[in-house]
Simulated scan of single mutants.
Amino acid sequence: MHKLNLKCEKFIRKSRYKSYKGTVGKVAKNRLNRRFNTPYALQKLVTDVTEFKCTNDEKLYLSPIMDLYNGEIIGFSMSKRPTLDFVMDSLKQVLQNIGECTKYRTTIHSDQGWHYQHKAWVKTLKQNKIFQSMSRKATCADNAVMENFFGLLK
């Protein structure tokens, strides 16, 4: 490290990204109730947004959607800003796979972030006959599978 003029800086978690901005739309009931297993593909999906701190104080946001059938990430988007379009992009990727191929109606579970309360998100789910499910406020265990994925990824 000395030869390459590298210095070690202590890792400090300064803050966490929080997408909750109060009730800005309708909060859906928790349909999953921590039942994270399913024998059917595309029946139960989970999503969330996480933040990565990069160099020069830049941030990068990730919005994956995971199928609880096998833990596969079936859609994702990345952005420098956590906008509605960024979250909708990952949903649009998943909608291409959902349709007649599912045996049971799809449920997508998220936290109560403003993205998931937004009327565009809710309308898109309704148009595609997808049930919406949300974690209870301040209950990260309701979306434990996605939080675990983020922990492993980081």
Rank of each mutant, 00 (worst) to 15 (best):
M1H: 08
M1L: 06
N5H: 01
L6Q: 01
K7T: 07
E9P: 00
K10N: 03
F11R: 15
K14F: 01
R16S: 10
K18Y: 15
S19H: 12
S19Q: 12
G22T: 12
T23I: 11
G25H: 13
G25Q: 09
G25R: 09
K29G: 03
R31F: 00
N33V: 00
N37S: 12
Y40V: 02
Y40K: 05
V46S: 05
V49E: 13
V49N: 12
T50M: 10
C54M: 15
T55A: 14
E58P: 06
K59H: 07
L60T: 11
L62Y: 13
M66V: 13
D67K: 06
N70K: 07
N70E: 06
I73A: 11
S77Q: 08
K80S: 13
T83L: 06
T83F: 04
T83A: 05
L84T: 02
V87T: 15
L91D: 03
L91K: 07
K92D: 13
Q96V: 13
N97Y: 14
Y104S: 15
S110P: 15
S110L: 15
Y116L: 15
H118V: 00
V122E: 05
V122C: 02
T124I: 10
L125F: 01
K129Q: 14
M134L: 07
S135D: 07
T139G: 00
T139C: 10
N143C: 00
N143I: 00
F149S: 08
G151W: 07
L153A: 03
